Amino acid sequence: MRHLLLIILSLLAFEAGAQNLLVNGGFEDENICTEYKHNCAPEAWIANSFYANYYYYTPGQAYKGTHFVGLASGTAYQKGVHNFIRTKLLSGLQPGHQYEIQFFVRSRHDILDSVGVYFTTTDFLYEKRRHNELSPQLWATDALDTLYEDPSLWQKVRLHYTATGNEQYITIGCFNRREYRFRGMPDFNRDYYFFLDEVTMKPLDPAEQLSAQADSVKAEIYNENERHEYLRRQIYVRSKTPPPPTILPITVMRIGLPPAPLQRIDTLVIPDIFFATASYQLTDRSHSTLDSFVNQLQGYTIDSIVVEGHTDSVGKLAYNEALSRNRAGAVKDRLAAGLAPKQLPFVARGYAYLKPIASNRTPAGRQQNRRVEIYVYRKEE
Rank of each mutant, 00 (worst) to 15 (best):
L204A: 05
N24Q: 13
P59R: 08
A62G: 14
T34P: 04
R285A: 15
N326I: 07
L257P: 13
E149M: 02
R264H: 15
K240G: 11
Y63C: 15
P243R: 05
Q296P: 10
R108W: 09
Q343S: 09
G350R: 04
R86C: 10
I273V: 14
Y319V: 10
Q94F: 13
E35A: 05
F119K: 03
Y236I: 13
P59S: 11
G17F: 15
Q168M: 04
Y375C: 10
G184R: 03
T283W: 13
A322H: 07
K355Q: 15
I250H: 03
Y351C: 03
Y63E: 15
V314M: 04
I85L: 01
T120Q: 08
R227K: 13
R130Q: 10
F274P: 04
Y54H: 02
L282W: 02
H310G: 05
E308M: 03
K79W: 01
A330D: 01
V23W: 02
V105R: 01
Q78G: 11
W45C: 12
R232N: 14
L231S: 06
T200G: 13
E308A: 06
H160S: 09
K379G: 06
L6W: 04
V199R: 05
P245T: 03
V314W: 05
T162E: 13
I101A: 01
I170V: 14
T34Q: 08
K379L: 07
I247W: 02
T164G: 13
N223S: 15
Q155D: 09
I305P: 08
R108C: 09
K316H: 06
T164W: 00
G60N: 03
I7C: 12
A41M: 08
F175S: 12
P42Y: 10
L344S: 05
L90W: 05
E127Y: 11
Y118P: 09
L231M: 11
R370V: 04
H131L: 11
N320M: 08
G173H: 08
L11W: 09
E321C: 10
I172D: 10
H82S: 04
V306A: 00
Q234A: 05
Y375L: 12
Y161V: 09
G315Q: 06
E100R: 12
A219K: 05
A52D: 14
R106H: 08
S286T: 11
D205K: 11
R325L: 13
R370P: 09
T122E: 07
L231G: 08
F68A: 01
H97D: 05
A140M: 03
Y55K: 00
R285F: 08
G70Q: 00
L323A: 07
V372H: 02
A337F: 04
T122G: 12
G350A: 11
Q263P: 15
K332E: 06
M201Q: 07
L144H: 07
R129M: 13
F293Y: 14
L323F: 01
E179V: 08
I46F: 00
D303M: 05
S135C: 06
I273P: 14
L89D: 06
C33S: 07
L93A: 12
D113N: 07
S10A: 14
A328L: 07
I273G: 12
S313G: 01
R264L: 15
R108A: 04
P243G: 12
F188E: 04
F195G: 06
Q281E: 15
E43R: 00
S286V: 07
E179A: 14
F84Y: 01
T122H: 08
F14K: 02
Y180C: 14
L112C: 12
